[in-house]
């Protein structure tokens, strides 16, 4: 039903760019949902309800993809014809991998710190900082995606997956500590 030849950016009336206007994205998302959400068709025919469901689902998917820095990068790579699926191999940046090991070790020892809540807070901030750094690099590379730069982006996508996982685990630990100590 929705014009599938349009990419997610076009669907939201936004320029194809890694740097995204979050306010505009959110606003257009609401407007699109207002026109297709199943609640608007609760009293319509079954086919209209079905289409509304599909349309609303599609808009949710587009929104989730564009608002997420990792999802957005992967999606833009796909638009540029880079096969992201074949990207299952892991990064070969040994310095990065060493650092990951060290970070994981630090996370596993955080409970024995004198102030575990403060320590986990700092840890989450550190990982967030690294994620932001990667996002900035990608934004610059997407400005002018030459072959070299595309390779750099793919590498950063892989790194981001590592950092994401670590960030999630750190937040879980933080939540557990808060439950125990507060």
């Amino acid at each position: 039903m929705l014009d599938l030849s349009k990419n997610f950016f076009e669907l939201f009336g936004l320029p194809v760019s890694y740097t995204i206007d979050n306010t505009a994205l959110r606003e257009r998302y609401r407007e699109l949902q207002r026109s297709v959400h199943p609640d608007r068709y609760a009293n319509a025919s079954q086919q209209e309800q079905r289409l509304a469901m599909q349309g609303s689902t599609y808009i949710n998917e587009a929104f989730e993809t564009l608002k997420d820095p990792l999802g957005r990068a992967q999606y833009m790579l796909r638009l540029l014809g880079v096969d992201v699926d074949a990207d299952k191999e892991t990064t070969k940046d040994t310095a990065f991998l060493m650092e990951q090991l060290e970070l994981r070790e630090a996370l596993s020892e955080i409970r024995s710190q004198p102030d575990p809540l403060g320590a986990i807070g700092d840890f989450v901030d550190t990982v967030s900082g690294k994620l932001n750094h990667v996002i900035h690099e990608m934004a610059a590379d997407f400005e002018n995606p030459s072959t070299d730069r595309l390779d750099a982006i793919r590498e950063n996508v892989r790194k981001m997956q590592f950092l994401r996982k670590l960030h999630q685990e750190a937040e879980t630990v933080e939540a557990e500590l808060e439950e125990e100590l507060l």
Binding site: R28, S35, V36
Partner: peptide, 25 residues
């Protein structure tokens, strides 16, 4: 009747979306 209207329903939905985005575009 629903089958006969399939194409029309799709056109409506797309037209709604166009209208939602019209101001911006």
């Amino acid at each position: 009747l629903e089958n006969a209207c399939d194409f029309y329903v799709e056109r409506r939905m797309n037209s709604n979306i166009r209208k939602a985005m019209a101001g911006h575009s």
